[in-house]
Simulated scan of single mutants.
Amino acid sequence: MNYLGHAFLSFGDAEILTGNMIGDHVKGKLALEKFPEGIRKGLMLHRKIDSITDVHPAIQRAKVWFRQDYGLYSGAILDSLMDHFLANDPQFFPSSHDLLQFSEKTYNQLETQQAYFPETFKQYFPYMREHNWLYNYRTLQGMQRSLNGLARRAAHIPPIENAYKTFIGHYYQLAQCYYEFIDDIVKAVKIELNPNSL
């Protein structure tokens, strides 16, 4: 999952959301100690989500279509693509308005936690909000921008155009992989946040 997925899987808690969203920018156990407990919980949740995603059979199957061209970058590409299918999932976002409201609420919650942003996240959070990255995962044009952004951040990734072509060419198979995956990750996160929920 990418930013939308991590935001969604924070289930409305501002501190968990912050940790979940900045997770890629905080490395190692020692780095966790400077954060409040709720943000630490979000950081650990981010790592848990990533580890579950990486080994899920549906995600492993989806990576095959990208592995020849992109090797280890297949996982990062799939993270963005799963956000597209989440953004269009009527179970969670019945309309574009629902996704827009969720996106604005997420930005507002993050704004209250800016003191805890790592420098890299602090630098591009304004662009995330201004260009509404979370909402724009919903559209094909938004996905092109998302993949182009990944290409800018990953210096050695092969030309990203083929990833978009593969995404379109395998759209319905990728959607099926998403639907096989999403209920499992939602259940796993709910158990992680509330072990007594079963």
Results as ranks from 00 to 15, higher is better:
residue 84 H to V: 04
residue 111 E to C: 04
residue 15 E to V: 05
residue 165 K to E: 14
residue 111 E to V: 02
residue 104 E to R: 15
residue 192 E to L: 11
residue 60 Q to K: 14
residue 36 P to C: 05
residue 60 Q to G: 11
residue 124 Y to T: 10
residue 193 L to G: 12
residue 54 D to K: 12
residue 46 H to S: 07
residue 56 H to N: 15
residue 73 Y to E: 00
residue 120 T to I: 13
residue 42 G to D: 00
residue 10 S to T: 06
residue 105 K to T: 13
residue 113 Q to M: 15
residue 123 Q to T: 14
residue 177 C to P: 09
residue 80 S to M: 14
residue 146 S to D: 01
residue 88 N to S: 09
residue 78 L to D: 04
residue 189 V to K: 14
residue 66 F to C: 04
residue 26 V to C: 02
residue 28 G to W: 11
residue 177 C to A: 15
residue 158 P to Y: 00
residue 193 L to K: 09
residue 167 F to L: 07
residue 27 K to G: 00
residue 25 H to E: 01
residue 21 M to G: 03
residue 120 T to W: 01
residue 71 G to T: 03
residue 51 S to C: 05
residue 115 A to R: 08
residue 47 R to D: 12
residue 41 K to N: 10
residue 159 P to C: 03
residue 71 G to V: 01
residue 115 A to K: 11
residue 175 A to M: 12
residue 67 R to E: 15
residue 26 V to T: 02
residue 13 D to R: 12
residue 161 E to A: 10
residue 106 T to Y: 00
residue 138 R to T: 03
residue 161 E to N: 13
residue 48 K to R: 13
residue 117 F to Q: 01
residue 95 S to M: 03
residue 121 F to C: 04
residue 76 A to H: 08
residue 92 F to A: 08
residue 197 S to G: 03
residue 159 P to K: 05
residue 85 F to S: 08
residue 140 L to R: 11
residue 109 Q to W: 04
residue 121 F to Y: 15
residue 108 N to R: 12
residue 121 F to G: 03
residue 111 E to I: 04
residue 17 L to Q: 04
residue 95 S to W: 00
residue 38 G to E: 11
residue 107 Y to V: 01
residue 119 E to W: 08
residue 166 T to W: 01
residue 17 L to H: 06
residue 153 R to G: 04
residue 137 Y to D: 07
residue 5 G to D: 14
residue 28 G to Q: 13
residue 26 V to K: 00
residue 193 L to R: 14
residue 178 Y to S: 07
residue 29 K to F: 02
residue 45 L to T: 13
residue 93 F to C: 03
residue 155 A to D: 14
residue 73 Y to M: 01
residue 3 Y to P: 06
residue 65 W to I: 07
residue 43 L to C: 01
residue 174 L to H: 08
residue 11 F to S: 05
residue 78 L to W: 05
residue 56 H to S: 06
residue 147 L to D: 08
residue 12 G to Q: 07
residue 13 D to P: 10
residue 65 W to P: 05
residue 67 R to P: 05
residue 68 Q to D: 14
residue 63 K to W: 02
residue 54 D to T: 11
residue 124 Y to V: 06
residue 31 A to D: 00
residue 100 L to I: 07
residue 25 H to F: 00
residue 104 E to Q: 15
residue 7 A to E: 06
residue 19 G to Y: 05
residue 152 R to L: 11
residue 163 A to E: 06
residue 1 M to E: 15
residue 127 Y to T: 15
residue 107 Y to H: 08
residue 78 L to A: 13
residue 41 K to W: 03
residue 53 T to N: 13
